[in-house]
């Protein structure tokens, strides 16, 4: 593989990383703190690609004999394996598929998983009567703690719609710790209204169904009085 081609592959990958970190689309794939490391590594990759690319362009401007190519190949071309061509794939996937954040497809496939939720760093103050917006993971954690703190408390939950069997549906969020490969699905089953379209983001108002979701292998339920479609938040992972 010619050095200029290697450099082009590096530059391609770098451009993908730049695009992701500049547009904020990196949030679909990795944790937010990765933004700056991504940008930094993209800059380094571009810097590494610059030399051979400039040389190739310059070489094209002059007469380029076999000698020139030969020397370069000898310098860099050693043993680059065929799989190096796969480096085009991330860029192709990013452009052609432009994959969005994880949604109902994976959440439904992961429906049988147990979801252990650790105690959140910040806990919402609940006074028992006022409608309170509670993060989905906190709701599930409170249910797993026995659910006593949720009894009679009107809450608003936000998440996207995923389906279960028997026309049931769930308010859902995916949670990632490092990247989308380690995603877990947080789900709360909705009792009441008809199910909206898959992956639609919704806010639901309702109250905890006492006794549901106290074990990690079943989702808690919420008896819902109102469902409002909302726009997806910038950070979709909870």
């Amino acid at each position: 593989m010619r050095p200029a081609v290697q450099a082009l592959l590096l530059a391609l990958l770098a451009v993908v990383l730049v695009r992701l970190s500049v547009t904020g689309e990196h949030l679909r794939y990795v944790a937010d703190w990765m933004r700056w490391p991504l940008l930094a590594s993209a800059v380094l990759l571009l810097a590494a690609a610059a030399g051979p690319l400039v040389a190739a362009v310059r070489g094209g401007a002059h007469d380029r004999g076999d000698d020139h190519v030969h020397k370069h190949d000898h310098e860099h071309g050693h043993g680059v394996p065929l799989v190096t061509w796969l480096l085009v794939l991330p860029a192709l996937v990013a452009v052609v598929v432009d994959p969005p954040e994880l949604g109902s497809y994976l959440a439904e496939r992961r429906a049988g998983d147990t979801t252990m939720v650790a105690e959140p760093d910040e806990v919402t103050v609940l006074d028992g009567s006022q409608l309170a917006a509670v993060p989905l993971d906190e709701f599930i954690w409170r249910a797993q703690e026995g659910g006593a703190t949720l009894e009679g408390q009107p809450v608003t939950l936000t998440g996207f719609v995923s389906y279960g069997g028997d026309r049931s549906w769930f308010v859902t969020r995916m949670a990632i710790s490092c990247c989308a490969a380690d995603a877990a699905a947080y789900r709360v089953q909705v009792e009441g209204p008809e199910r909206p379209a898959r992956d639609q983001w919704v806010e639901v108002d309702g109250t905890y169904v006492v006794g549901s979701g106290t074990a990690a292998d079943t989702a808690p339920s919420i008896a819902v009085t109102e469902v409002r479609p909302v726009a997806a938040p910038e950070q979709t992972y909870g």
Binding site: L13, V16, L17, L20, H26, R28, Y29, V30, M34, P37, L38, A40, S41, P90, V93, A94, V96, V97, D98, P99, P100, E101, L102, G103, S104, Y105, L106, C178, C179, A180, A181
Partner: peptide, 25 residues
């Protein structure tokens, strides 16, 4: 793009790109 717009392809793409993007730095 639209031909590939199937949930399994799209989900694979997201996870694939996530692993590559996470590992690159």
């Amino acid at each position: 793009g639209p031909l590939l717009d199937r949930p399994e392809v799209v989900t694979w793409s997201t996870v694939f790109l996530a692993i590559v993007v996470q590992s690159t730095p």
